[in-house]
Structures are given as structure tokens and as C-alpha cells.
Simulated assay, not measured.
Amino acid sequence: MRALTLEPGTAGSLRLTDLPDPTPGPGELLVEGLAVGVCGTDKEIVQAEYGWAPPGRDRLVLGHESLGRVSTAPEGSGFTPGDLVVGVVRRPDPEPCGACARDEFDNCRNGRYTERGIKELDGYGAELWCVEPAYAVAVDPALGHLGVLVEPTSVVAKAWEQVRRVGERAWFEPRRALVTGAGPIGLLAAMIGVQQGLEVHVLDRVETGPKPRLVDRLGATYHSGYVEEVASGLQPDVVIEATGVGDLVFAAMGNTAPYGVVCLTGVSQGGRRTRVDAAKVNRDMVLENDVVVGSVNANLRHYRQAAEALAAADRDWLDGLITRRVPLGSFADAFEAGPEDVKVVITLDGGR
């Protein structure tokens, strides 16, 4: 089989590699890879900023946003050949910590977790892969190739869950949400916000192209102005922050409605200084009972929530989110940003 591999820590090492077909272990599914999404984490690994190969190995199979079709499944697994599935990314640490022991491995406390395609476990960027049934999530067959969006949607399903849990420390009935950043994470966060019946606003810097169109088709409102102006005018009850831009993060934090909840999903780049009136931020958060919470990764229930949210979404809208599909043989093109890219996917099955 062909697989997309690299040597973590070595820039320029990404290549297509011929590997032996995998043999499923006891109880595992053998899955035909259909597609793998490309995100910022993949690009950081390719640029040697991140990533770990499996122990005793130099190279890692890339890819954590998966979609596959079950080829073989053991009896009693809950899956049958032909089922569409995605593989969960993270695995609990072997200790395990208290969170991992309770299947909350997205909140691992000791950092000894592993991740498919990222940290010490081969990913899903291969024509064949194996997965334990406990870490496979069924995809509605009607979604077809759009099932590759389950993993990024799981990230925002968790974010919305965190917002709800924080808000419910007291009476919580949000009406208006602001999503900062109209990349895949931001747009999928907006989608779930609309599904919850909220008035959703999305802020991004571009003024033309697919992003404003996708927001409009979602029934949300698109903004391209300064975050201070937009947020102060809206006074959102909830902010889902998906850019990681420091100035924007603090501006959003300072312009919510009282009892506002800000959920940070974007990872900031280090080394950039931001001028912040820390005393004002503290004063506002205390006097308004505001909360800022970080959220990353997802566990099994978030994948299932994501699969349900996608199954309920408009198929044409989801299809518009995937702006480029690149065949495996042309994988390098997927890592070069296009002017109108939103979501780029590598197809693994020759376009079948």
C-alpha cells in the first residue's frame, strides 16, 4: 500500500512510501482509506515544528482527519464490511491518569497520551489502516466523502459542550454568538451554533471569496471589520475563538455580554508580544462573571456528536467547505495554500 510518511523533526522529509499492507490485530478493523484532511497541525509537522515517530522508528504515517470504508470486521465488533468510519485520534496514556481512566482522554493530565498521525502512533494517511472498534466511529452513509469532516467537527462539538457546561454554573440562555476566524474550525463552530438556534456572527479578515458566501448560506452574518468594533456592537453571550491571534483573543474577551463565555480553540504562535490592559481585563471578568476556557482535541462522545451534527447539516453547504480535493499522488499540492482554500482533502482511493 501507499502511505504519506515523514521523519518528524526533519523538514522536507514528506514523501509517498510503499509499505506492507497492515494486518489487523486481534479484534481490529481493517479499513480502506478514502480520504484524509489537511489542517494546520499537519503543516506544522511537515515543517518540523511538531510530531513524534512511533518508538523505535524514524518515520511517521501522517494524517489524523480520517475517513475509511471497513474491509474486514471481526464478529461482535459492531461493524460490517462496507461501513463508513472515522478513527479517533487520541489514545489514553498507559498509566492512566484520572481523566484517561474515565475516558476523558482529551483532558489527559500527565501528557503521556498518544495520537494517530501526530504523537507516536501512525496516522490515517494510507490506503489501508487498522483501528480498534472502540476507537472507530460510524458515519452516516448519506454523508459519503463528507465524513472526513468528522474529526474537525469533533473539536468544535467539544468546544460547544465546554461552553454549555461552564454557562450552566448558573442560569444560561445564550442568544448571540461570535465566531472569530472563518477557517474550517470557525465555520463548523458556526454551523453548530446555528443548529442550536443561536444568532451567529462570524468575523474574518477576508472580504470576498468562499468564506463570506459560506457564512451567508449558513444563515449567519459575516463581518470583516475590527474585532473591537464588531464585538463591542454585538456584545455576544458566547465567543468561539478560532484564530489564535493574541490581539484578537484579548479584544474578544473584553467585549462580551455580562456572564460571557469565551472558548479558545486557536493555538497562538509564540514570540509575538501583545499590549494588554491586564487590570481592565481582570476587572471586567470579575465584575461580569465572565469565563475564558481553552479547548483542544476530543473524546469519543464528541466524535459521535460531530457525526450527528454533520448528518443533520445541509450536504451542499458541507461540500462547499471542502474547496480542494487532491489525489494522493499529488499530495504536495495539498500543503501549498491556495488563494480560496477553506478545507483541503487528500483522496486516498483514486477518486472512487
Rank of each mutant, 00 (worst) to 15 (best):
G260C: 01
T72D: 10
D42P: 01
N110T: 02
V249C: 10
V163A: 11
W171L: 02
D316N: 07
V202T: 04
R217D: 14
G351F: 08
G294D: 08
G27R: 04
A307S: 07
R57S: 13
D316R: 05
D247Q: 05
D122S: 00
R109V: 06
M285G: 12
L84R: 08
P339C: 05
K119R: 07
L30A: 05
L34G: 11
E241F: 14
E44R: 12
Q235G: 08
Y226D: 13
L62N: 13
V88Q: 10
P22C: 00
T23W: 08
V137M: 03
S232R: 11
V156E: 04
E173T: 05
L4I: 09
R315L: 09
V194T: 13
E115L: 03
G123P: 03
V137H: 06
I240L: 11
E336Q: 12
R112Q: 05
V267F: 15
E336F: 00
E49C: 15
E28F: 00
R91D: 12
D204Y: 12
L30S: 09
V89Q: 03
M191E: 14
G78A: 04
A3N: 13
P8N: 02
G33H: 11
H201C: 09
G37I: 05
E7T: 13
N299I: 01
D42I: 06
V46R: 06
K343F: 09
A11S: 00
F79I: 02
A159R: 08
V194W: 06
T72F: 00
T80L: 10
V238C: 05
Q235V: 04
A101I: 10
N282Y: 00
T243I: 02
A231R: 03
V261S: 01
A311F: 10
G225K: 02
A311C: 09
S71P: 01
G12F: 14
E75F: 15
A334D: 02
L203N: 07
G351V: 00
P55S: 14
T347P: 03
V148W: 00
Q47D: 13
S330V: 11
G260D: 00
